[in-house]
């Protein structure tokens, strides 16, 4: 499948999935369970609204979502209390799979959700979306329900505030356009068809999630795309336009940290993919600068993109879900116990 064919077939708009009754009937025919996971860290101001909307619209009124869960990295504010008060299941990431130890990062929450939650499909939605709406969930689930070959659905946001006609640019944020798209263009041209590869909203089948490693930090989205692409090809992806997403904007320095983490994840994969010989050992310190009393000072950020192994390699997981270790996992890849 070339890029244009893929875009024509696998790029959707959330409005295609407005008929939730039809989607629920299709879900039931397939015997699927769907879990919605919201990873959080100090999100008490926005989490209440997300839970109220999702529980009312997608659990109570239209039972598309079977499990609504918040997995928290150890918030200092009332995030978990707020979420629980409106009916979400709430978990501390550190209390899930305690044998595996505790790492800090959004990717850790996403990885542990695979163990904790029971859905055949898991939908991940960030907690900082100001204009939250049920489309953020059903728009991502739709392709998985109606296209059996699709395994991983990514969100993108493409509604212009004002536009007359003709050609307009379409794409992602600053990190996407400056870093990810050039990297993908060099190494994985087909992945450039994903309009916003870093969006934090995606829905994925369990058999995919359990089979891929999880960087715990900035690199989780990038690694997913590369790893899923390597195993299943472009046809496994779909993307859905969810219109606008209003959220906090990050400064250039924060984006620098993000880029640094993504590059670590990316370069770690190159030797395994046979793209290059052994890489020199990479530094984990990002250096930024500030001026104090007319003197330039370095600010050092130690950013280590640690990774969790594929969940299927954990014995506890295989026991809980009655699965066996696939033969492709040889000794070198088997269980890492942190």
């Amino acid at each position: 499948m070339n890029i244009n064919e893929w875009i024509a077939r696998n790029t959707h708009h959330h409005s295609e999935y407005w008929d939730l009754r039809k989607m629920i009937a299709a879900k039931q025919r397939q015997g699927l369970k769907i879990s919605l996971c919201i990873p959080t860290l100090n999100e008490e101001k926005t989490i209440g609204k997300e839970i109220v909307i999702f529980k009312s619209e997608l659990v109570d009124r239209y039972p598309l979502v079977d499990e609504l869960a918040v997995i928290d990295s150890g918030s200092q504010d009332a995030t978990l209390d707020v979420a629980a008060s409106f009916g979400a299941d709430t978990y501390l990431a550190s209390e899930i799979l305690p044998e595996a130890g505790e790492k800090r990062g959004k990717g850790e929450n996403l990885w542990k959700a695979i163990y904790q939650l029971n859905g055949d499909i898991i939908v991940y939605v960030d907690a900082d979306i100001k204009n939250i709406h049920p489309r953020f969930v059903y728009g991502l689930i739709g392709p998985l329900i109606y296209q059996p070959e699709v395994r991983y659905v990514k969100a993108f946001y493409d509604r212009p505030l004002a536009f007359s006609s003709g050609i307009r640019p379409s794409g992602g944020g600053r990190v996407t356009e400056i870093l990810i798209r050039p990297l993908f263009s060099l190494f994985f041209p087909e992945l450039t068809a994903l309009i916003q590869p870093l969006s934090g909203e995606y829905a994925v089948r369990r058999e995919v999630l359990e089979s891929i490693p999880f960087p715990i930090g900035y690199g989780v989205e990038t690694s997913h795309l590369i790893d899923v692409y390597q195993q299943w090809g472009l046809a496994a992806f779909a993307q859905t336009d969810l219109d606008q997403r209003v959220h906090r904007n990050q400064g250039a320095r924060s984006l620098g940290k993000m880029g640094f983490g993504i590059l670590q994840t990316f370069f770690k994969r190159l030797p395994h993919l046979g793209f290059t010989a052994a890489m020199p050992e990479m530094q984990t310190v990002l250096r930024q600068f500030q001026v104090s009393d007319n003197q330039y000072e370095q600010i050092l950020h130690d950013i280590v993109e640690d990774e969790r192994p594929p969940m299927i390699t954990l014995e506890q997981y295989r026991t809980k879900f009655g699965k066996s270790l696939p033969p492709e996992y040889n000794d070198a890849q088997t269980e890492k116990k942190s």
Binding site: V52, I53, K55, S56, E57, D60, R61, F86, N131, H133
Partner: peptide
């Protein structure tokens, strides 16, 4: 309650 609050949020926005 959640249905009422969800409508409240959607209408308010």
């Amino acid at each position: 309650r959640e249905n009422l609050l969800a409508s409240l949020v959607i209408i308010s926005e």
